[in-house]
Each structure stands twice: as structure tokens, then as C-alpha cells.
């Protein structure tokens, strides 16, 4: 990899909802990873495994139950002045999974996208404001006629692009993109992904890219993390993960990717994953271990030895 400066460090992060109650959910259960400046880290995993919660905790929408998030070495969850918070908010932006719920229904598109520009004083006058919004709409494949509409007057994919335009408006350094393209048709997906890559090359942006479409994730990511039930179970360079998937959940995930080929689909064989299959003993030390260079797997001592033996010669 080109650059190896850590932009974001997540250390032993935990996020429990309703702690101590019968409906306690360990949405994030002790995860540790870093995101390097200028890279794209893909995050995939079972629905409900804690991907969005991870994103939301990073940008401080939730207070962490335990653990640390460091941005450029500074603890995100520590005490801060208003000015510091504002600066943070501009550097980190999130494109939300649920586009409708995250757009104010009573605001016109013009004002939704310009909100960040206004807060951070990024435009001098109304004319510049309008031009900047038009430009952003075009960037995401919409046009200036759309600026006068309300969110409900858009299709699902058009709304998702409004969320992207809004996040780009303040020119952040780090973007958490939570399923930014799942509601788009494949051609516009390609357009948005090409755009994200271009912006990355031009401006050195860093992305945390959460998605379910594994071929797209592979395409855009430098490294990929796989989550299962609040834990990170595998973390590896993108190519390596697809070539040598090691955790059985990762293997089941890769075996289920639907391909645009009806014949293939009629004969597909899926691998299923049963978490009980590990037969971990009480107190057994299960943790992330490096099996190949940069390729980490959540495993026990015994599993680690087996994986090493299997992958030693690859």
C-alpha cells in the first residue's frame, strides 16, 4: 500500500444497547482496527451485525459503551469545545443508509444540500451558493431542475444521490458511506463509484465503505473487514480476502454472491455457516491473528495452527 499513516484508529470499541436488560444487544462487541489515510476500507457482514452502529459511533452519533476512537491521534469521544466539534463535523461526513429518513421532508433540495455550506461558511453569497449546489447535483448525476423539489418527489435512487451530494458539499477528508449505492441502478452505481474513486485520487479522501454488494466492495476497497454479530471476524487486503477466505462466515458469504447468469444460479451451491461449528471451549482465547501478511482472522489457537498450515505455501 502507498501510504501508511493511520487516520482513524478504533480500539476495543463496544456499543451495547439496553445494557443489563433482557433485550440487551451487543451491537459492537470489542472491535479493533485502523483506517489508513487515503485508503478505502470496505465493511461487510450479516444484516444487523453492527456495521451502521460502527459508523454512527465513529461520527459520535452514539456515545461508545467502551473503547476509543482516535482521529488523527485525537480521541473523538473526548471533551471538546464547540469550535473543535464543528471542525470535526466538517472533516467527517456520513452518507446514511436510509436516505429518506435522513432528509428533512420540509426542506427543498437546494437548502438540504447547502445546509453544510451555510453552517461552515463555505460560500460568500447566494449566487455562489446556488452555483455550488447545481454543480454538486450534476456531480451525482442529477440536474439543476431538481434543486427546487422536495425529497418525496424523488425516486429511491435519486434520494440516495441527494445524500451523497450533501456529504460532498463540505469537502470532508473522511467519508463513512453506509450502503451509498444499493438503491441505484448498476449504471449509476458505476458512475458514483467512479466518482468516489476520482475524488479520492484528487483529494486524498479516506473512505469507510459499508455495503452488501461484494463485487462492488471488492472493486472499490483496498482492504475489507468482515463482521459477524458485533465482532470483526476477518480483515484482509481485498484481493487476498477473495482468494483465501478463511473464516467460515466469510466463506459462506462469498458462496452466496448472486451472479447475473441464470444457468449458474439454477445450479448454485451455497455454503452455510453455523457459529456452533467452532466448538470453542469456555475461556478459550479467541482473537484476531495474522495468518498471511495483513490478513487477520478471528480464531482460536487450534484454528490458527490449522490455518497457518493450510496457507503457509500460498
Amino acid at each position: 500500500m502507498k501510504i501508511q499513516k493511520k487516520l482513524l484508529e478504533i480500539k476495543n470499541l463496544k456499543q451495547y444497547f439496553n445494557p443489563g436488560k433482557p433485550n440487551e444487544v451487543k451491537a459492537i462487541d470489542d472491535i479493533t482496527f485502523a483506517i489508513y489515510k487515503g485508503e478505502t476500507l470496505g465493511l461487510v457482514g450479516e444484516s444487523g451485525c453492527g456495521k451502521s452502529t460502527t459508523g454512527r459511533t465513529i461520527i459520535r452519533l452514539y456515545d461508545a459503551t467502551d473503547g476509543e476512537v482516535l482521529y488523527d491521534g485525537v480521541n473523538v469521544h473526548g471533551r471538546k469545545s464547540k469550535a473543535e466539534l464543528k471542525a470535526f463535523n466538517r472533516k467527517m461526513q456520513m452518507i446514511f443508509q436510509d436516505p429518506y429518513a435522513s432528509l428533512n421532508p420540509r426542506m427543498k433540495v437546494m437548502d438540504i444540500i447547502a445546509e453544510g455550506l451555510d453552517i461552515h461558511g463555505l460560500v460568500k453569497n447566494a449566487k455562489e451558493r446556488q452555483e455550488r449546489v447545481y454543480q454538486l447535483l450534476e456531480t451525482v448525476g442529477l440536474n439543476k431542475e431538481h434543486a427546487n423539489r422536495y425529497p418525496h418527489e424523488f425516486s429511491g435512487g435519486q434520494r440516495q444521490r441527494l445524500g451523497i451530494a450533501r456529504a460532498l458539499a463540505v469537502e470532508p477528508e473522511f467519508i463513512i458511506a453506509d450502503e451509498p449505492i444499493s438503491a441505484l441502478d448498476v449504471s449509476i452505481q458505476a458512475q458514483v463509484v467512479n466518482l468516489l474513486k476520482e475524488l479520492q485520487e484528487e483529494k486524498g479522501l479516506t473512505y469507510l465503505f459499508i455495503a452488501h454488494d461484494l463485487s462492488m466492495v471488492k472493486y472499490i476497497s483496498d482492504r475489507i473487514g468482515v463482521m459477524y454479530f458485533g465482532k470483526l471476524v476477518e480483515l484482509a487486503p481485498a484481493e487476498d480476502l477473495y482468494k483465501f477466505p478463511m473464516h467460515p462466515y466469510t466463506q459462506s458469504l462469498l458462496s452466496a454472491i448472486p451472479l447475473p447468469d441464470p444457468d449458474y444460479e439454477r445450479n448454485r451451491v451455497r455454503k452455510s455457516y453455523d457459529p456452533k461449528s467452532h466448538n470453542y471451549k469456555d475461556g478459550e482465547n479467541v482473537t484476531m491473528r495474522e495468518v498471511r501478511p495483513g490478513h487477520f482472522v478471528y480464531c482460536s489457537d487450534v484454528e490458527f495452527a490449522a490455518l497457518q498450515a493450510e496457507h503457509a505455501n500460498n
Binding site: 448525476g141 440536474n143 441502478d185 448498476v186 449504471s187 449509476i188 452505481q189 458505476a190 458512475q191 463509484v193 467512479n194 474513486k197 461484494l214 463485487s215 462492488m216 471488492k218 472493486y219 477473495y242 454472491i257 447475473p260
Partner: peptide
């Protein structure tokens, strides 16, 4: 549409997108 999908096997430099709006 069928040409815009990334493939798992080949690493394209840029994804094909239908031109225009």
C-alpha cells in the same frame, strides 16, 4: 445495463457507466 456490472474476476481500472444523463 448488462455491461455496467463489475466482475469478480477481472480488475477493471474504471467501471463502465452508460454515458449521458
Amino acid at each position: 445495463l448488462l455491461s455496467s456490472m463489475p466482475s469478480l474476476d477481472v480488475q477493471e481500472a474504471k467501471l463502465y457507466a452508460i454515458p449521458g444523463t
